[in-house]
Write a protein that binds this DNA or RNA. Structure first.
Lengths: 177, 177
DNA sequence: GGATTACGTCAGTACTGTTGACGTAATTTC
DNA sequence: GAAATTACGTCAACAGTACTGACGTAATCC
């Protein structure tokens, strides 16, 4: 408080750039890409009164049917309370059903219904279309580079989560079987 | 309400997968990658009592010093009110200063202060480090592929925004001048 | 039988986003 | 020069998603 007027820093008029040793190009591209990537499903979700949180839950329940609430919390990295409301709505609207765990009856296994499966597909469709368009002129090598890059962006400890995709019929790359 | 019990869809036990014609592999990778990409700065921001919105404003004011409020709203794709709170805090904490527009005195040009520049760099540093690590074994070709992919993921109408990066000294690729 | 685990839920709070309306100063238009 | 428009700031009200902490219940583990 000793310096009120002088404390007001002078405006810096030069742009921050990659010259500062920071990869602003990709940082910014990543921001724009993700913003538009999520905008497609957001519009569909609005019709259902759902938000992005519902999408994520629906996605992972479809990807890993039978996962428990605890496992879902771990994948999403959110708290129980944050999940509760969203999950309840998805169950009430018959997109997801809970089944008592077979071995441990305390657990609730989560499964999509036909309705939930359909919505998950509808939400993923425009995203997939966008990806296909972005990869239009790319070959297998480029696709592999992009997959490797995205995977490398994930925290190493959490990379295990990615590969828990059960039983791929058309087994591409999969460190399973 | 005519069908309460039968309405409860049966659980689908098979996982949704790329077989459904949807590129779930990349959809999911993109989710995980972005989640962790933003987690680094989030931790730093918490120390300042700031959130992700502050980060975005700070980033773009540093990248395009002198942009007006209207331009910033256009880049962020949020409403005036959403920006107001966040911008006010950044100004009050002396990270950003407003300068009356030279030609049009209604406009407020936004500039970072030294403090704001330093914070922007501090926030970008871990993100850049993560990117560098992810590109570790990649050559120039791969990097170019990834940049092209990310750019192609952005809505075409909005791609113009990306290239408004003023005066790069080390001019890499830039469709300007 | 007691501790732990898995889950559900209640209460309170914070951040980021929305729409709509109003005020003010500056610029543009006629 | 008066009127319309523009750029911005602000007030009010509300929604979605996230958080922490605490408590209860049923099931399992030891």
């Amino acid at each position: 408080m000793t310096d009120r007027s002088p404390a007001t820093g002078k405006p810096i008029r030069t742009a921050i750039s990659d010259d500062d040793g920071i990869d602003f190009a990709i940082i910014e591209l990543f921001f724009f890409a993700y913003r538009d990537f999520t905008s497609d499903p957001d519009q569909i979700l609005a019709d259902y009164g759902f938000g992005r949180a519902h999408h994520r839950v629906l996605h992972f329940v479809n990807r890993r049917p039978g996962l428990t609430v605890a496992e879902l919390l771990d994948v999403l990295k959110i708290t129980k309370q944050s999940l509760a409301r969203v999950l309840k709505q998805l169950i009430d609207t018959d997109h997801i059903v809970q089944v008592q765990g077979p071995r441990d009856r305390r657990q609730r296994e989560l499964y999509p219904t036909a309705k939930g499966r359909a919505l998950a597909l509808a939400l993923a469709r425009p995203q997939s279309r966008r990806i296909r368009a972005a990869l239009e002129d790319s070959g297998t090598t480029e696709r592999a580079s992009i997959e490797r890059f995205l995977e490398a962006m994930v925290n190493p400890e959490l990379r295990a989560q990615i590969n828990i995709v059960p039983a791929q019929t058309s087994g591409k790359k999969n460190g399973d079987h």
